[in-house]
């Protein structure tokens, strides 16, 4: 029995685990030549492989159960979507109109995502948007696809975002700042994947 030898070399399972994780040990020479340590290492390796297999099995089992359980959880979540700050809109004497910051940022995202080569990351409205007429800057992080001219892409995005904000908000936009924070190879699939996952109810 490897784990219960008659002559114990005194090395602990902890030390062998560490050796297995890191590949280094002050005791490496002993371990290399000790039958007991070698047998224990073999056992730990089998355990480690079986653990990975078991985890994949567990995950595959959950995938096979469909996505109904997750749909329910996500439905509960969506009701708690963050609205952000409240942005005032001009209104008559007996009413108070406003739109949420979350809605405006979602709009900026939609504008960017509809352009070829652009995927919007972080988007921030900088300035006191809760005060009508206050100066506001829009900071956008962008992931661009290879093969686009970045300066003209930035210009196009700035104009499209500014035009959309002009139509749908009364924000006093001083600037739309575009930062390219990521470049994607032509076949990167995050946009498609995002669109697919949002539109699909079930995995194949």
């Amino acid at each position: 029995m490897a784990m219960n030898p008659k002559q114990d070399c005194g090395r602990r399972i902890e030390d062998l685990s560490d050796f297995l994780d890191s590949g280094i040990s002050a005791d490496a020479t002993h371990i290399a030549h000790c039958p007991q340590c070698q047998a224990r290492l073999a056992g730990l390796r089998i355990l480690s492989t079986a653990a990975l297999d078991l985890m994949s099995d567990d995950e595959a089992q959950v995938v096979a159960e469909g996505t109904g359980w997750l749909d329910g959880m996500l439905t509960n979540l969506r009701m708690e979507t963050r609205a952000g700050r409240s942005i005032p809109l001009s209104s008559g004497p007996f009413e108070e109109l406003s739109e949420t910051e979350g809605a405006v940022i979602a709009m900026v995202r939609a504008v960017g995502d509809s352009m070829g080569g652009v995927l919007i990351g972080r988007c921030r409205l900088v300035g006191d948007v809760t005060v009508a007429g206050a100066a506001v800057e829009v900071n956008i992080n962008v992931s661009a696809r290879y093969g686009y001219q970045l300066p003209s892409l930035a210009q196009e995005l700035r104009e499209a975002v500014a035009a959309e904000l002009l139509v749908h908000t009364e924000l006093n936009i001083l600037a739309v700042n575009v930062a390219f924070t990521d470049l994607r190879p032509p076949l990167e699939d995050s946009v498609e994947e995002l669109a697919n996952d949002v539109n699909k109810d079930e995995r194949p």
Binding site: T81, R82, G84, I105, R109, I120, G121, R122, R124, N141
Partner: peptide, 8 residues
């Protein structure tokens, strides 16, 4: 990053 901005 988008999720962090509240993109559900």
């Amino acid at each position: 990053e988008r999720a962090a901005d509240g993109d559900a």
